[in-house]
């Protein structure tokens, strides 16, 4: 019963048809799912903030603000000038949070895209080809599972340099493993279905069967894993920055908490710590909410009555 699947996607439909169908699935899914709607709304909010960060931030996040006497405004609590107060070095917390949105979104989306791209291809090839190809690819996946995530990323970042791109690559190098495994098991079950046989009968080659016939059917699952990967990548980047291995050039949320932690300000400077902390949680949560809604395409059993 867990195998009850969506219809094999037809590959002969026009693009317009597909877009229309996609849109109606989208409205059907989100239409009656309150959590999904909240998630989507939050996510759009973050994307908006990220896109217009330079215009929305009232100060340069690296600027040391001074008071009327010309002294640096160190650890100043929230005020009308500085909504979320200032840091040890007199920097505006509110502006840093806004600019930090970009970092999280960038890391989330790029790492997820990379890892899902690798994972989908590995899973597809592995499940489809079987035999020793499957064996080799699955052993490589096992190895990715054997590497402890954060320690691996830390070592890699130390070796390659604490640059945001290196952090993204390091995250993706581990994260593809889960997509690879689920896509593979889906492909294994699709491979046996009648539509694959008829594709052969119609003269389709391996590549065509894999990418034109099977892939569209595992795509909903891929999207689901992409959503999860975004959230995990965001959390991973924040953790790495918190440990002090983040890109020092960027004001990421994790980096902000690291700074506060380092000068022992987390005990009292709530204005400095809570905004970035809550931002990470809200962003990751919005992605999980959306992912939960997407999950219903892959497993209609989960559709909840509301």
């Amino acid at each position: 019963m867990s195998n009850r699947q969506h219809e094999p996607a037809s590959t002969t439909n026009s693009l317009a048809d597909q877009v229309r169908r996609g849109w109606s699935t989208f409205t059907a899914l989100f239409g009656n799912d309150r959590l999904g709607q909240i998630g989507l709304l939050l996510l759009l909010g973050f994307i908006f903030i990220g896109a217009f960060a330079p215009f929305l931030a009232p100060y340069d996040p690296g600027e040391m603000n001074r008071d009327d006497q010309g002294d640096i405004l160190r650890l100043d609590g929230p005020s009308t000038d500085h909504l979320f107060g200032t840091t040890q070095l007199g920097r505006d917390v509110f502006s840093q949070v806004i600019v930090g949105t970009r970092v999280s979104l960038l890391v989330g989306v790029s790492a997820a895209t990379m890892s899902v791209f690798i994972g989908t291809n590995v899973g597809l090839i592995s499940g489809y080809k079987g035999g020793y190809v499957d064996d080799v690819l699955m052993r490589i996946t096992d190895i990715a599972y054997a590497l402890p995530f954060l320690p691996f990323v830390i070592v890699l970042v130390v070796i390659l340099g604490a640059d945001i791109m290196n952090i993204i690559i390091a995250i993706a190098l581990i994260q593809w493993r889960s997509t690879a495994r689920v896509v593979r098991s889906q492909v294994l079950s699709h491979k046996e279905r009648p539509y694959v046989e008829s594709a052969y009968a119609a003269g389709a080659g391996d590549l065509r069967v894999m990418y034109r016939h099977i892939l569209p059917n595992v795509l909903p699952l891929v999207f689901l894993y992409a959503a999860l990967a975004i959230a995990w990548a965001i959390i991973a980047e924040a953790s790495i920055a918190f440990l002090g291995f983040g890109d020092p050039e960027l004001h990421s949320w994790g980096q902000m908490i690291y700074d506060a932690y380092n000068v022992d300000a987390i005990r009292f400077a709530y204005w400095w710590v809570i905004p970035p902390g809550m931002s990470i949680v809200l962003l990751a949560m919005s992605v999980f909410f959306v992912g939960r809604t997407l999950e219903q395409i892959t497993n209609p059993e989960l559709r909840h009555r509301e």
Binding site: A231, I235, A238, S239, F242, L243, G254, I257, Y261, I266, V273, G277, I280, V281, L282, A284, M285, F288, F289, R292
Partner: peptide, 14 residues
Amino acid sequence: LLARSSPEFWTGIV
């Protein structure tokens, strides 16, 4: 989902 969205360092700090 809230528990899973909060990085360990943040849960710890809270």
